[in-house]
Design a protein around this nucleic acid. Sequence first.
DNA 1: CCCGATCTGTACCAATCATTCCAAAAAGGA
DNA 2: TCCTTTTTGGAATGATTGGTACAGATCGGG
Lengths: 209, 209
Amino acid sequence: MSPTYVDFLECLFQKAAMRSKAFNPDDALRGALERFWSHGYHGTNMPELMAAMGITRGSFYGTFGSKIAAFTSAFETYLASVDRFGRRTVSGCAGRREAVLQVLTGILGLTQAEDGWRGCLIGNTAREAVAREKDIQVLLDRGMSVLCEIFDLALALPEADAPDLDPGQRTTEALRLATFLQGLLVASRCGATEDDLTRLIAREVETLP
Amino acid sequence: MSPTYVDFLECLFQKAAMRSKAFNPDDALRGALERFWSHGYHGTNMPELMAAMGITRGSFYGTFGSKIAAFTSAFETYLASVDRFGRRTVSGCAGRREAVLQVLTGILGLTQAEDGWRGCLIGNTAREAVAREKDIQVLLDRGMSVLCEIFDLALALPEADAPDLDPGQRTTEALRLATFLQGLLVASRCGATEDDLTRLIAREVETLP
DNA sequence: CCCGATCTGTACCAATCATTCCAAAAAGGA
DNA sequence: TCCTTTTTGGAATGATTGGTACAGATCGGG
Protein backbone atom coordinates (compact mmCIF):
# COMPACT_ATOMS: atom_id res chain seq x y z
CA MET A 1 0.00 0.00 0.00
CA SER A 2 1.50 3.33 -1.05
CA PRO A 3 1.73 6.21 1.43
CA THR A 4 -1.34 8.43 1.51
CA TYR A 5 -2.09 12.05 2.36
CA VAL A 6 -2.78 10.88 5.91
CA ASP A 7 0.80 9.68 6.16
CA PHE A 8 2.00 13.08 4.98
CA LEU A 9 -0.10 14.81 7.61
CA GLU A 10 1.42 12.52 10.20
CA CYS A 11 4.86 13.66 9.16
CA LEU A 12 3.71 17.30 9.06
CA PHE A 13 2.46 17.33 12.62
CA GLN A 14 5.03 14.95 14.08
CA LYS A 15 6.64 16.54 17.11
CA ALA A 16 9.38 13.90 17.30
CA ALA A 17 9.39 13.55 21.07
CA MET A 18 9.83 17.24 21.64
CA ARG A 19 10.09 18.10 25.25
CA SER A 20 7.58 20.79 26.22
CA LYS A 21 9.09 24.14 27.09
CA ALA A 22 9.53 24.88 30.75
CA PHE A 23 8.39 28.50 30.36
CA ASN A 24 5.37 30.08 28.76
CA PRO A 25 6.48 32.24 25.82
CA ASP A 26 3.47 34.53 26.28
CA ASP A 27 4.35 35.13 29.92
CA ALA A 28 7.93 35.85 28.94
CA LEU A 29 6.71 38.30 26.31
CA ARG A 30 4.57 40.07 28.88
CA GLY A 31 7.66 40.38 31.07
CA ALA A 32 9.58 41.85 28.16
CA LEU A 33 6.76 44.30 27.49
CA GLU A 34 6.76 45.39 31.13
CA ARG A 35 10.46 46.15 30.95
CA PHE A 36 10.49 47.84 27.54
CA TRP A 37 7.47 49.88 28.56
CA SER A 38 9.06 51.33 31.66
CA HIS A 39 12.67 51.57 30.53
CA GLY A 40 12.57 51.80 26.75
CA TYR A 41 14.45 49.79 24.17
CA HIS A 42 17.91 51.29 24.63
CA GLY A 43 17.38 51.53 28.38
CA THR A 44 17.07 47.75 28.58
CA ASN A 45 20.12 45.53 28.19
CA MET A 46 20.04 41.82 27.70
CA PRO A 47 20.61 40.71 31.32
CA GLU A 48 17.82 43.02 32.49
CA LEU A 49 15.55 41.95 29.67
CA MET A 50 16.03 38.24 30.29
CA ALA A 51 15.58 38.72 34.03
CA ALA A 52 12.27 40.48 33.34
CA MET A 53 11.26 37.62 31.07
CA GLY A 54 12.26 35.00 33.60
CA ILE A 55 14.41 33.07 31.15
CA THR A 56 18.11 32.71 30.36
CA ARG A 57 20.23 33.34 27.31
CA GLY A 58 19.76 30.02 25.62
CA SER A 59 15.99 30.09 25.90
CA PHE A 60 15.81 33.70 24.81
CA TYR A 61 17.80 33.39 21.62
CA GLY A 62 16.28 30.00 20.89
CA THR A 63 12.75 31.32 21.12
CA PHE A 64 12.85 35.01 20.18
CA GLY A 65 15.97 35.28 18.06
CA SER A 66 17.16 38.77 18.93
CA LYS A 67 16.49 41.80 21.07
CA ILE A 68 14.81 43.74 18.31
CA ALA A 69 12.62 40.77 17.42
CA ALA A 70 11.53 40.41 21.03
CA PHE A 71 10.78 44.13 21.13
CA THR A 72 8.66 43.90 18.02
CA SER A 73 6.67 41.02 19.48
CA ALA A 74 6.25 42.85 22.79
CA PHE A 75 5.05 45.94 20.93
CA GLU A 76 2.46 43.86 19.07
CA THR A 77 1.28 42.51 22.39
CA TYR A 78 0.96 46.07 23.67
CA LEU A 79 -1.06 47.20 20.68
CA ALA A 80 -3.41 44.23 20.96
CA SER A 81 -3.92 44.95 24.66
CA VAL A 82 -4.59 48.64 24.16
CA ASP A 83 -7.02 47.79 21.40
CA ARG A 84 -8.92 45.34 23.57
CA PHE A 85 -8.84 47.67 26.55
CA GLY A 86 -10.12 50.59 24.50
CA ARG A 87 -12.94 48.68 22.86
CA ARG A 88 -14.07 47.20 26.13
CA THR A 89 -14.05 50.64 27.74
CA VAL A 90 -16.06 52.21 24.94
CA SER A 91 -18.57 49.38 24.87
CA GLY A 92 -19.33 50.02 28.53
CA CYS A 93 -20.32 53.64 27.93
CA ALA A 94 -23.62 55.15 26.85
CA GLY A 95 -22.58 58.57 25.55
CA ARG A 96 -19.68 59.91 23.56
CA ARG A 97 -18.48 62.29 26.30
CA GLU A 98 -18.41 59.56 28.89
CA ALA A 99 -16.60 57.23 26.52
CA VAL A 100 -13.87 59.75 25.74
CA LEU A 101 -13.46 60.52 29.43
CA GLN A 102 -13.18 56.84 30.30
CA VAL A 103 -10.70 56.06 27.54
CA LEU A 104 -8.49 59.04 28.37
CA THR A 105 -8.41 58.38 32.11
CA GLY A 106 -8.17 54.64 31.53
CA ILE A 107 -5.13 54.78 29.29
CA LEU A 108 -3.57 57.50 31.41
CA GLY A 109 -4.03 55.19 34.38
CA LEU A 110 -2.27 52.34 32.57
CA THR A 111 0.72 54.54 32.07
CA GLN A 112 1.08 55.81 35.62
CA ALA A 113 2.91 52.79 37.03
CA GLU A 114 6.47 53.31 38.27
CA ASP A 115 5.88 56.90 39.35
CA GLY A 116 4.28 57.78 36.06
CA TRP A 117 7.38 56.69 34.27
CA ARG A 118 5.93 54.14 31.92
CA GLY A 119 4.02 56.49 29.71
CA CYS A 120 2.68 55.08 26.46
CA LEU A 121 4.90 52.60 24.68
CA ILE A 122 3.94 54.13 21.35
CA GLY A 123 4.95 57.66 22.25
CA ASN A 124 7.99 56.47 24.16
CA THR A 125 9.24 54.48 21.20
CA ALA A 126 8.56 57.35 18.83
CA ARG A 127 11.20 59.37 20.66
CA GLU A 128 13.82 56.66 20.73
CA ALA A 129 16.60 56.25 18.24
CA VAL A 130 15.28 52.80 17.36
CA ALA A 131 12.24 54.52 15.82
CA ARG A 132 14.44 55.36 12.83
CA GLU A 133 14.30 51.67 11.86
CA LYS A 134 11.73 51.18 9.12
CA ASP A 135 10.12 48.14 10.76
CA ILE A 136 9.58 50.13 13.94
CA GLN A 137 8.17 53.06 11.99
CA VAL A 138 5.48 50.76 10.67
CA LEU A 139 4.61 49.66 14.18
CA LEU A 140 4.37 53.29 15.32
CA ASP A 141 1.99 54.19 12.51
CA ARG A 142 -0.13 51.19 13.39
CA GLY A 143 -0.07 52.24 17.04
CA MET A 144 -1.38 55.70 16.31
CA SER A 145 -4.06 54.15 14.11
CA VAL A 146 -5.17 51.90 16.94
CA LEU A 147 -5.57 54.89 19.25
CA CYS A 148 -7.44 56.88 16.61
CA GLU A 149 -9.74 53.97 15.93
CA ILE A 150 -10.65 53.66 19.59
CA PHE A 151 -11.46 57.36 19.85
CA ASP A 152 -13.37 57.15 16.62
CA LEU A 153 -15.45 54.37 18.11
CA ALA A 154 -16.05 56.45 21.22
CA LEU A 155 -17.09 59.48 19.18
CA ALA A 156 -19.57 57.38 17.22
CA LEU A 157 -21.72 57.04 20.34
CA PRO A 158 -24.74 59.37 20.47
CA GLU A 159 -24.88 62.24 22.93
CA ALA A 160 -28.00 63.83 24.36
CA ASP A 161 -28.36 67.53 23.44
CA ALA A 162 -25.78 67.26 20.68
CA PRO A 163 -26.05 66.19 17.05
CA ASP A 164 -24.19 63.11 15.85
CA LEU A 165 -20.81 63.72 14.26
CA ASP A 166 -20.23 62.98 10.63
CA PRO A 167 -17.38 60.57 9.77
CA GLY A 168 -14.98 63.30 8.67
CA GLN A 169 -15.47 65.22 11.88
CA ARG A 170 -15.00 62.03 13.86
CA THR A 171 -11.69 61.28 12.18
CA THR A 172 -10.28 64.71 12.92
CA GLU A 173 -11.48 64.67 16.51
CA ALA A 174 -10.11 61.18 17.03
CA LEU A 175 -6.67 62.22 15.78
CA ARG A 176 -6.85 65.28 18.01
CA LEU A 177 -7.66 63.20 21.08
CA ALA A 178 -4.92 60.68 20.34
CA THR A 179 -2.49 63.55 19.91
CA PHE A 180 -3.63 65.16 23.11
CA LEU A 181 -3.22 61.87 24.95
CA GLN A 182 0.39 61.62 23.86
CA GLY A 183 0.95 65.18 25.06
CA LEU A 184 -0.56 64.31 28.43
CA LEU A 185 2.00 61.58 28.91
CA VAL A 186 4.87 63.93 28.14
CA ALA A 187 3.45 66.48 30.55
CA SER A 188 3.18 63.85 33.27
CA ARG A 189 6.94 63.40 33.05
CA CYS A 190 7.65 67.12 33.07
CA GLY A 191 6.29 68.13 36.42
CA ALA A 192 2.56 68.11 35.76
CA THR A 193 0.64 66.97 38.83
CA GLU A 194 -2.19 64.44 38.99
CA ASP A 195 -4.51 67.39 39.50
CA ASP A 196 -3.21 69.14 36.37
CA LEU A 197 -3.86 66.07 34.27
CA THR A 198 -7.38 65.61 35.62
CA ARG A 199 -8.17 69.23 34.93
CA LEU A 200 -6.85 68.99 31.37
CA ILE A 201 -8.95 65.93 30.63
CA ALA A 202 -12.07 67.52 32.06
CA ARG A 203 -11.56 70.61 29.94
CA GLU A 204 -11.09 68.43 26.89
CA VAL A 205 -14.30 66.48 27.45
CA GLU A 206 -16.31 69.65 28.07
CA THR A 207 -15.37 71.22 24.77
CA LEU A 208 -16.12 68.10 22.78
CA PRO A 209 -18.54 68.87 19.93
CA MET B 1 52.37 101.32 49.55
CA SER B 2 50.06 98.50 50.57
CA PRO B 3 48.09 96.63 47.91
CA THR B 4 44.68 98.13 47.14
CA TYR B 5 41.37 96.85 45.81
CA VAL B 6 42.60 97.73 42.36
CA ASP B 7 45.43 95.24 42.79
CA PHE B 8 42.94 92.59 43.82
CA LEU B 9 40.88 93.27 40.71
CA GLU B 10 44.02 92.93 38.65
CA CYS B 11 44.60 89.51 40.16
CA LEU B 12 40.95 88.61 39.66
CA PHE B 13 40.97 89.30 35.96
CA GLN B 14 44.52 88.23 35.25
CA LYS B 15 44.56 85.68 32.48
CA ALA B 16 48.22 84.77 33.06
CA ALA B 17 49.24 84.74 29.43
CA MET B 18 46.41 82.45 28.46
CA ARG B 19 46.23 81.78 24.81
CA SER B 20 42.76 82.50 23.44
CA LYS B 21 40.81 79.46 22.38
CA ALA B 22 40.82 78.65 18.70
CA PHE B 23 37.12 77.73 18.72
CA ASN B 24 34.06 79.53 19.94
CA PRO B 25 32.50 77.57 22.83
CA ASP B 26 29.07 78.97 21.99
CA ASP B 27 29.32 77.74 18.42
CA ALA B 28 30.44 74.35 19.66
CA LEU B 29 27.49 74.26 22.04
CA ARG B 30 25.12 75.07 19.22
CA GLY B 31 26.61 72.17 17.28
CA ALA B 32 26.07 69.90 20.26
CA LEU B 33 22.48 71.10 20.56
CA GLU B 34 21.87 70.37 16.89
CA ARG B 35 23.06 66.83 17.34
CA PHE B 36 21.33 66.08 20.65
CA TRP B 37 18.15 67.59 19.28
CA SER B 38 17.96 65.35 16.25
CA HIS B 39 19.50 62.18 17.65
CA GLY B 40 18.93 62.32 21.40
CA TYR B 41 21.37 61.84 24.22
CA HIS B 42 21.85 58.09 23.96
CA GLY B 43 21.74 58.28 20.19
CA THR B 44 24.84 60.45 20.15
CA ASN B 45 28.27 59.00 20.89
CA MET B 46 31.40 60.96 21.57
CA PRO B 47 32.94 60.90 18.06
CA GLU B 48 29.62 62.04 16.58
CA LEU B 49 29.16 64.67 19.25
CA MET B 50 32.63 66.13 18.84
CA ALA B 51 32.29 66.09 15.07
CA ALA B 52 29.05 68.04 15.40
CA MET B 53 30.78 70.49 17.71
CA GLY B 54 33.75 70.87 15.38
CA ILE B 55 36.30 70.15 18.09
CA THR B 56 38.41 67.22 19.19
CA ARG B 57 38.66 65.19 22.35
CA GLY B 58 41.16 67.34 24.16
CA SER B 59 39.20 70.53 23.60
CA PHE B 60 35.94 68.90 24.50
CA TYR B 61 36.95 67.45 27.83
CA GLY B 62 39.01 70.53 28.65
CA THR B 63 36.09 72.87 28.05
CA PHE B 64 32.91 70.93 28.81
CA GLY B 65 34.09 68.21 31.16
CA SER B 66 31.76 65.37 30.22
CA LYS B 67 29.02 64.30 27.86
CA ILE B 68 26.24 64.88 30.39
CA ALA B 69 27.61 68.32 31.25
CA ALA B 70 27.68 69.27 27.58
CA PHE B 71 24.11 68.01 27.23
CA THR B 72 22.97 70.08 30.17
CA SER B 73 24.55 73.20 28.70
CA ALA B 74 23.05 72.48 25.29
CA PHE B 75 19.64 72.01 26.88
CA GLU B 76 19.94 75.37 28.62
CA THR B 77 20.80 76.92 25.28
CA TYR B 78 17.69 75.33 23.81
CA LEU B 79 15.44 76.63 26.57
CA ALA B 80 16.83 80.14 26.24
CA SER B 81 16.29 80.05 22.48
CA VAL B 82 12.74 78.77 22.74
CA ASP B 83 12.01 81.42 25.33
CA ARG B 84 13.35 84.21 23.13
CA PHE B 85 11.64 82.81 20.05
CA GLY B 86 8.31 82.52 21.83
CA ARG B 87 8.39 85.99 23.32
CA ARG B 88 9.39 87.56 20.05
CA THR B 89 6.59 85.73 18.27
CA VAL B 90 3.97 86.79 20.81
CA SER B 91 5.12 90.39 20.81
CA GLY B 92 4.52 90.54 17.07
CA CYS B 93 0.86 89.59 17.41
CA ALA B 94 -2.18 91.72 18.12
CA GLY B 95 -4.72 89.16 19.33
CA ARG B 96 -4.57 86.07 21.49
CA ARG B 97 -5.79 83.71 18.76
CA GLU B 98 -3.19 84.91 16.31
CA ALA B 99 -0.47 84.63 18.95
CA VAL B 100 -1.33 81.04 19.83
CA LEU B 101 -1.47 80.12 16.16
CA GLN B 102 1.90 81.71 15.49
CA VAL B 103 3.58 80.10 18.48
CA LEU B 104 2.20 76.64 17.69
CA THR B 105 3.12 76.74 14.01
CA GLY B 106 6.40 78.46 14.80
CA ILE B 107 7.63 75.87 17.27
CA LEU B 108 6.25 73.05 15.15
CA GLY B 109 8.27 74.48 12.28
CA LEU B 110 11.44 74.50 14.35
CA THR B 111 11.01 70.82 14.99
CA GLN B 112 10.40 69.70 11.43
CA ALA B 113 14.03 69.62 10.31
CA GLU B 114 15.50 66.23 9.37
CA ASP B 115 12.23 64.84 8.07
CA GLY B 116 10.37 65.93 11.18
CA TRP B 117 12.73 63.90 13.29
CA ARG B 118 13.99 66.58 15.61
CA GLY B 119 10.82 67.11 17.54
CA CYS B 120 11.06 69.14 20.73
CA LEU B 121 14.17 68.58 22.80
CA ILE B 122 12.07 68.78 25.97
CA GLY B 123 9.62 66.07 24.97
CA ASN B 124 12.35 63.98 23.39
CA THR B 125 14.45 64.04 26.52
CA ALA B 126 11.44 63.27 28.70
CA ARG B 127 11.17 59.91 26.99
CA GLU B 128 14.85 59.03 27.25
CA ALA B 129 16.40 56.97 29.99
CA VAL B 130 18.63 59.90 30.92
CA ALA B 131 15.49 61.70 32.13
CA ARG B 132 15.60 59.55 35.25
CA GLU B 133 18.62 61.59 36.37
CA LYS B 134 17.52 64.18 38.92
CA ASP B 135 19.44 67.02 37.28
CA ILE B 136 17.72 66.31 33.99
CA GLN B 137 14.33 66.11 35.67
CA VAL B 138 14.84 69.66 36.89
CA LEU B 139 15.63 70.80 33.36
CA LEU B 140 12.50 69.11 32.04
CA ASP B 141 10.28 70.82 34.59
CA ARG B 142 11.88 74.14 33.68
CA GLY B 143 11.31 73.37 30.01
CA MET B 144 7.60 72.77 30.44
CA SER B 145 7.41 75.97 32.50
CA VAL B 146 9.02 77.94 29.71
CA LEU B 147 6.46 76.65 27.22
CA CYS B 148 3.57 77.38 29.60
CA GLU B 149 4.86 80.88 30.23
CA ILE B 150 4.98 81.63 26.52
CA PHE B 151 1.42 80.44 25.99
CA ASP B 152 0.36 82.36 29.09
CA LEU B 153 1.83 85.48 27.56
CA ALA B 154 0.02 84.80 24.31
CA LEU B 155 -3.27 84.25 26.10
CA ALA B 156 -2.89 87.54 27.93
CA LEU B 157 -3.40 89.41 24.68
CA PRO B 158 -6.90 90.83 24.16
CA GLU B 159 -9.23 89.39 21.56
CA ALA B 160 -12.05 91.21 19.79
CA ASP B 161 -15.48 89.69 20.49
CA ALA B 162 -14.19 87.72 23.48
CA PRO B 163 -13.73 88.68 27.12
CA ASP B 164 -10.25 88.69 28.62
CA LEU B 165 -9.21 85.55 30.45
CA ASP B 166 -8.60 85.60 34.16
CA PRO B 167 -5.18 84.42 35.36
CA GLY B 168 -6.41 81.00 36.55
CA GLN B 169 -8.04 80.30 33.20
CA ARG B 170 -4.87 81.42 31.44
CA THR B 171 -2.71 79.03 33.44
CA THR B 172 -4.90 76.04 32.63
CA GLU B 173 -5.17 76.93 28.97
CA ALA B 174 -1.42 77.49 28.74
CA LEU B 175 -0.71 74.06 30.20
CA ARG B 176 -3.23 72.56 27.82
CA LEU B 177 -1.60 74.17 24.82
CA ALA B 178 1.90 73.14 25.90
CA THR B 179 0.61 69.60 26.40
CA PHE B 180 -1.08 69.60 23.03
CA LEU B 181 2.11 70.84 21.39
CA GLN B 182 4.05 67.90 22.80
CA GLY B 183 1.38 65.58 21.49
CA LEU B 184 1.64 67.15 18.05
CA LEU B 185 5.31 66.31 17.92
CA VAL B 186 4.66 62.69 18.80
CA ALA B 187 1.96 62.49 16.16
CA SER B 188 4.31 63.94 13.57
CA ARG B 189 6.56 60.94 14.14
CA CYS B 190 3.73 58.43 13.99
CA GLY B 191 2.46 58.92 10.49
CA ALA B 192 0.54 62.18 10.83
CA THR B 193 0.83 64.27 7.66
CA GLU B 194 1.62 67.96 7.39
CA ASP B 195 -2.04 68.43 6.55
CA ASP B 196 -3.17 66.59 9.67
CA LEU B 197 -1.03 68.81 11.86
CA THR B 198 -2.29 72.01 10.24
CA ARG B 199 -5.87 70.87 10.69
CA LEU B 200 -5.29 70.03 14.34
CA ILE B 201 -3.77 73.42 15.05
CA ALA B 202 -6.58 75.25 13.28
CA ARG B 203 -9.18 73.34 15.29
CA GLU B 204 -7.32 74.19 18.48
CA VAL B 205 -7.22 77.91 17.75
CA GLU B 206 -10.89 78.00 16.78
CA THR B 207 -12.05 76.56 20.08
CA LEU B 208 -9.90 78.89 22.15
CA PRO B 209 -12.03 80.72 24.75
C1' DC C 1 61.84 85.36 20.29
C1' DC C 2 60.20 82.34 23.80
C1' DC C 3 57.32 80.43 27.13
C1' DG C 4 53.24 78.26 27.89
C1' DA C 5 48.72 77.15 26.61
C1' DT C 6 45.92 75.09 23.06
C1' DC C 7 45.18 71.89 19.35
C1' DT C 8 45.65 67.32 16.87
C1' DG C 9 45.87 62.54 16.66
C1' DT C 10 46.88 58.16 18.36
C1' DA C 11 46.97 54.72 21.62
C1' DC C 12 44.87 53.01 25.51
C1' DC C 13 41.68 52.14 29.37
C1' DA C 14 38.00 49.42 31.67
C1' DA C 15 33.22 48.70 31.06
C1' DT C 16 29.39 47.35 28.53
C1' DC C 17 26.91 46.04 24.40
C1' DA C 18 24.32 42.03 21.81
C1' DT C 19 25.39 37.66 20.40
C1' DT C 20 27.53 32.88 19.80
C1' DC C 21 29.38 28.56 21.37
C1' DC C 22 29.56 24.78 24.27
C1' DA C 23 29.39 21.42 27.86
C1' DA C 24 27.05 19.89 31.71
C1' DA C 25 22.72 19.49 34.14
C1' DA C 26 17.84 18.75 34.31
C1' DA C 27 13.58 17.06 32.81
C1' DG C 28 9.70 15.49 29.85
C1' DG C 29 8.05 11.74 26.50
C1' DA C 30 8.18 7.00 25.06
C1' DT D 1 15.11 3.67 32.08
C1' DC D 2 16.74 5.75 27.95
C1' DC D 3 16.78 9.21 24.58
C1' DT D 4 16.21 13.73 23.24
C1' DT D 5 15.35 18.24 24.12
C1' DT D 6 15.58 22.09 26.93
C1' DT D 7 17.77 24.67 30.37
C1' DT D 8 21.67 26.51 32.55
C1' DG D 9 25.71 29.16 33.05
C1' DG D 10 30.47 30.16 32.07
C1' DA D 11 33.55 31.76 28.47
C1' DA D 12 34.49 34.33 24.69
C1' DT D 13 33.16 36.87 20.56
C1' DG D 14 34.07 41.65 18.30
C1' DA D 15 32.20 46.04 18.47
C1' DT D 16 31.32 50.20 20.93
C1' DT D 17 30.81 52.89 25.04
C1' DG D 18 32.70 57.33 27.72
C1' DG D 19 36.92 58.81 29.32
C1' DT D 20 42.22 59.32 30.02
C1' DA D 21 47.02 59.95 28.83
C1' DC D 22 50.42 61.65 26.11
C1' DA D 23 53.18 62.76 22.25
C1' DG D 24 54.26 66.53 19.05
C1' DA D 25 52.54 70.31 16.22
C1' DT D 26 50.72 74.90 16.44
C1' DC D 27 50.02 79.38 17.80
C1' DG D 28 49.16 83.64 20.72
C1' DG D 29 50.68 86.97 24.29
C1' DG D 30 54.36 89.21 26.73
